[in-house]
Simulated scan of single mutants.
Amino acid sequence: MVKNAHGHTVDLLGEAIVAGRYREGGIIPPEPILGEELGVSRTVVREAIKALAAKGLVVTGPKVGSRVLPQDVWNWFDPDVITWQARVGLTPEFLRDLQDLRRVVEPAAVRLAAERATAEDIDEIESAYDGMKSAIENGGDYVTHDLRFHHGLLRAARNRMLTQMSKALNALLRTSFEISTTRSNGPALSLPMHRAVLDAVIAHDGAKAERSVLKLIDGARADIEAVLGSRRRLPRLSRPPPRLKAVAGTAADIHPGSRSR
């Protein structure tokens, strides 16, 4: 979606702050200078600064201008903040915080999903799983279907706060999933783990669903730690998501223990 001048200005300034071009505790240039640099009016700059303040990146005050706040007070549940971080480059601290968050939130949510999922919920998660499987076997967009799978689980928990959280977690989860796709056979190796979670939800077995999703999350953590340990440059969030190449044979051929519909 093409953003208007306001949205574009928020993106430019937000990304500059997250990238460190405006340092913590430093003062952002005044509105007239920013407006000239970015080719927008002072009003657009002023509204953009207000948006950044609402996201916790800056604080403004009379006669002191706009000052960049420390990272630990930024709103890390804001999708824009996550997207800016992913664009400028992921950090080990960011990725480890993400994995800790997943380990706290998802197991409890999946247990609730196993207890409360409707037939429509299960159909949606099954459809997402089929999309993941097809992307592995035939090539295509795996990440989008992986996101659908996890969002479906959170929605199936039938908890309004978790449903809202799923929107905020979108960019967070995508960073993890894109890293997993950089690992050799990463998606194919995780597919049976997704199937185990889904089967437990279908069986309405909350304890098994919780154990299965923990195994899945810990597998993602291992992928991330392997990437961090390799000392390769961490990937940036791509847009659109990367597409897998088709593999010889089916996912079930590669992983005989997995079960498809």
Rank of each mutant, 00 (worst) to 15 (best):
V2I: 13
H6Y: 12
H8K: 12
V10A: 08
L12E: 14
L13E: 05
E15F: 10
I17H: 00
I17Y: 06
V18K: 06
R21E: 14
R21V: 11
R23D: 06
I28F: 01
P29L: 04
G35Q: 08
L38A: 11
G39E: 06
S41E: 05
S41Q: 05
T43I: 14
V44P: 02
V45M: 13
A48F: 06
K50Q: 07
K50W: 09
A51V: 09
L52I: 12
L57G: 03
L57T: 03
P62T: 02
V64F: 11
S66M: 02
P70K: 08
V73I: 14
V73R: 14
F77A: 06
F77H: 14
F77Y: 15
F77I: 00
P79M: 01
V81A: 04
I82G: 05
T83S: 14
T83D: 14
Q85A: 07
Q85K: 09
T91K: 15
P92R: 08
E93R: 13
E93V: 08
F94H: 13
R96Q: 12
D97E: 13
D100R: 12
R102I: 11
V104Y: 10
V104N: 07
P107E: 09
A108C: 07
A108S: 12
A109H: 05
A109Q: 05
R111F: 09
L112Y: 13
L112K: 15
R116N: 09
R116F: 06
R116D: 04
A117T: 00
A117F: 09
E120A: 15
E120K: 15
A128G: 06
A128K: 10
G140I: 03
Y142Q: 02
Y142M: 04
Y142D: 02
Y142E: 01
H145G: 02
R148H: 11
F149D: 05
F149K: 07
H150W: 05
H151E: 11
G152Q: 13
L153P: 10
R155Y: 13
A157Y: 08
R158H: 15
R158E: 11
R160D: 14
M161K: 11
M161D: 12
M161C: 00
L162F: 10
T163R: 06
M165N: 06
K167P: 02
K167R: 10
L169R: 14
L169K: 12
L169Q: 14
N170Y: 14
E178A: 05
S180K: 12
T181N: 01
R183L: 04
P187L: 02
S190A: 14
P192L: 04
H194E: 02
A200V: 10
V201Q: 06
I202T: 09
D205H: 09
A207S: 12
A209P: 07
L214Y: 08
K215P: 03
I217D: 00
A220Q: 10
R221C: 08
I224E: 01
E225L: 02
L228F: 03
L228W: 07
G229M: 03
G229S: 03
R231H: 07
L237M: 08
P240N: 01
P240H: 04
P242D: 00
K245W: 02
A246M: 02
A246E: 03
A248T: 11
T250I: 02
A252Q: 13
H255Q: 11
S258C: 10
R259H: 09
R261H: 14
R261I: 09
